[in-house]
């Protein structure tokens, strides 16, 4: 066990866990930030996607000890009032079905748009292929990403 100082959604937070604990479980179990989801535990489904310094990362494979001073953003910290252009576009296209994967999808999409404000279809596919949606909302996700890109 060791103490880690983390910067989560703009706040300094402290946690006492073993070094190998994935950030996913630190967020969910220790900080009640349960918007970040457990899906596979092996970085294959994308449900646990968060941002480290604005870049999409699978938190189930990121040990807490590797985070250091870097800024962590979760779905809860993406915007103050749920009004990030990507979140608004998700509502506009009524994307979710069950909703379980959508936080991860949104975090991957915002990371993509941070780096590439006008992605092509192929670039969207490449950025989003790591996020599984078992309900099959992919066509709506793609439309929402394009709407969000155009709204910036």
């Amino acid at each position: 066990m060791a103490t880690y100082n983390l910067k989560i959604n703009g706040k300094d937070q402290q946690v006492d866990v073993s070094a190998s604990t994935p950030l996913l479980w630190v967020l969910r179990d220790h900080f009640q930030l349960v918007g970040t989801k457990f899906g596979c535990g092996i970085a294959q489904c994308g449900a646990c996607t968060i941002h480290i310094e604005g870049i999409a990362v699978r938190s189930c494979q990121l040990p807490v000890s590797a985070v250091g001073e870097q800024k962590i953003t979760t779905i809860e910290g993406l915007s103050e009032n749920g009004d990030h252009p990507v979140q608004k576009a998700w509502i506009e296209h009524d994307v979710p079905q069950c909703g379980y994967c959508q936080a991860g999808q949104i975090m991957s999409a915002t990371s993509l748009l941070n780096q590439n404000p006008n992605p092509s279809d192929i670039e969207i596919d490449e950025a989003m292929n790591g996020n599984i949606c078992r309900c099959g909302t992919y066509t709506r996700i793609k439309k929402a990403i394009k709407t969000a890109a155009n709204s910036k």
Binding site: V34, G35, P96, G99, Q102
Partner: peptide, 10 residues
């Protein structure tokens, strides 16, 4: 439930 979903509510 759209808003709850896109903001990651429990």
């Amino acid at each position: 439930a759209g808003t709850e979903i896109v903001t990651g509510k429990p």
